[in-house]
Write a protein that binds this DNA or RNA. Structure first.
Lengths: 349, 349
DNA sequence: ATGAAAGCGCTAACAA
DNA sequence: TTGTTAGCGCTTTCAT
């Protein structure tokens, strides 16, 4: 081990090996073949470098080559099943390409989102992924000014290619499923399905709500004004809204489509105060998947989004160097309930 | 907007403002006061920079200042409640300090872990956090060679300060809770508690197993050889093991302490095939917390680790510039079940 | 109060 | 086959 004072540079290796810095640089990189450095020197240099614990300084290399080797991604938050599995995929695809991923979370705040994009530009990321963008136009403007290839994931932008879940199909299928499974009682308003959670201002929620409406209409019962309760993502507000709804209706509606796991947490907070019997008069669906939610006391129909597929497609777009403004769509997957009322605990999906 | 061709540099701003590059650099940074640049020039330069959409190049700045402004963290995986909430905290503490977080996942593979640490060193991170280290000594060696302050989180290392959960206390408390709540039948081997999941080679599991043994011993029934089934983290193997155990015992044991959520997923896969009645003869505990797991059909005692607290302490160690090898401990939290047998669905914890 | 110049570590012409 | 040189964009003496 050399003295732990300062990291070795190519100049140290050059001195130690008797070669020049540029020869060392080439020998340590890929370019030694075309520079026709002899294998002997390459070997010698590499062994010295290894002995000295040399590793390149990417700041210097990036500065010189005008490529940092970094890929940035903005996500709304880390602490979330959907986004954290996007992170996982983002990282493994980045590695495949020899890139180093930098992931930052915006907490869905446009200001924070812009600040992050700014920071990533400052670090000269080579490409940028923006998942769940809250202000895609601003982001595109910044990236374009910095001449930076970028792609939107999950929520689309108009200034760059985008990959989104097929929210319409996912929600339409789920709605139809709930319509089929819903227990019918007798022509009251409690026979209706309700949509709860999400933000109608965001693209994904809007598409799902649209699908919900269309599926109901297609089934002959177009939704009334109160049937879509887009109360955001917080468990609290979902809990409050479902409670208020049950008050109004005098009990649970025939079916509930919950827009997100977080909202579902709130809904569950309310349902858990009810006798299990009451739940039999209702069918529950949730857009997004959680393995434990699948094992609750009542059946839950879920939709699992293909985070891996979204990221794969996004990289595919980045890989091909064109800049056409495509909007690619990835299918989500319907997940059948794992618990049923009439088998003791459950059956395996 | 200037032409989107190349990013503006201080030289561009210098030319445009008639000042020199060094003046621009000072004016745009913090050092203009001590360099006694007039407020007028500072204002002028800043407005030009803003108009040109200038932003500093951190590669160049880092190269010159020998500080990148990056903090690295290695975690086992993103797609996990515990680690993703560590990421969230890691990021927000980093921001507080004006640092940019870079998080990479090792999949618990020592080789991958080393490669990541190497990469982060290459990018000249200013500090490094290693969560769930699989080869802490190797990591410390690399960091020391690069003269890099680092801290271990969740699993300790001998080469650097560490912050860990109080796994012993968490598991001991949970075991005692299960002992108290366990349904007593009649002196058979099915009255025993079983520990399932985890890797006895990793520090956290080892401490929990130790606590489990001690708590049983203290209660007068030291565990037999088969009572600790450390079968790893995969749902599959936990499912297989719990099934085999029930076969051996002729039914569920009086209590099960599951070592992780992933193992719990497997255990649940087995339990879900049983009549709910059977579960009444058993009490279930899980080390780690999931909000949906709290709402299952049977009560689950859980332990929630304080990811935020772990990261907070780790930063505290980094903040104070000493290098003493402390091992700091953070208390986990016991979470009582939210569902009970004798109230219809549940009661709110 | 400001400018000139050197240099952080690396790579890519261009020489030899 | 290898060495010399310039320069990526920035900060920091050292001069003025």
């Amino acid at each position: 081990m050399p003295r732990a004072s300062r990291k070795a540079t190519i100049y140290d290796i050059a001195r130690l090996s008797g070669a020049s810095a540029s020869t060392v640089s080439a020998a340590l990189g890929e370019s030694w073949r075309e520079r026709r450095i002899s294998e002997a020197t390459v070997e010698a240099i590499r062994s010295i470098a290894a002995a000295e614990g040399y590793s390149a300084n990417m700041q210097a290399r990036g500065l010189r080559k005008a490529r940092s080797g970094l890929v940035g991604m903005v996500i709304p938050l880390h602490d979330n099943r959907f986004f954290s599995s996007m992170s996982q995929s983002f990282e493994s695809f980045a590695r495949e390409r020899g890139l180093v991923p930098v992931i930052a979370s915006s907490m869905r705040e446009p200001g924070e989102e812009r600040r992050i994009v700014e920071t990533l530009i400052t670090y000269a990321v080579d490409y940028m992924f923006i998942a769940g963008a809250t202000d895609p136009d601003a982001v595109s403007a910044m990236c374009n000014a910095a001449n930076l290839r970028h792609v939107f994931v999950d929520l689309p932008g108009r200034g760059a290619p985008s990959v989104v879940s097929d929210n319409y199909k996912g929600a339409a299928d789920l709605t139809r499923r709930l319509l089929t499974d819903r227990p019918i009682s007798g022509g009251t308003c409690r026979d209706r399905l309700y949509f709860i959670g999400g933000d109608p201002g965001d693209y994904a929620s809007a598409r799902r709500i649209e699908a919900f409406r269309d599926a109901l209409t297609e089934a002959g019962s177009p939704p009334g004004p109160g049937q879509v309760i887009a109360c955001g993502y917080a468990p609290r507000s979902a809990m409050r809204e479902i409670a208020a709804l049950c008050d109004r209706l005098g009990g649970l509606p025939a079916g509930i489509l919950v827009n997100s796991l977080t909202a579902f947490e709130g809904v569950l907070g309310h349902l858990s105060g009810l006798p299990l019997e009451d739940l039999r008069s209702s069918v529950i669906g949730c857009y997004d998947y959680d393995p434990f939610a699948a094992y609750l006391q009542f059946p839950v129909h879920m939709v699992r989004q293909d985070a891996h597929g979204l990221i794969r497609e996004a990289y595919r777009i980045i890989d091909q160097n064109t800049n056409d403004l495509v909007l690619r769509t990835v299918e989500p997957q319907q997940i059948a309930p794992r618990t049923f009322y009439d088998r003791p605990f459950s059956d395996h999906g």
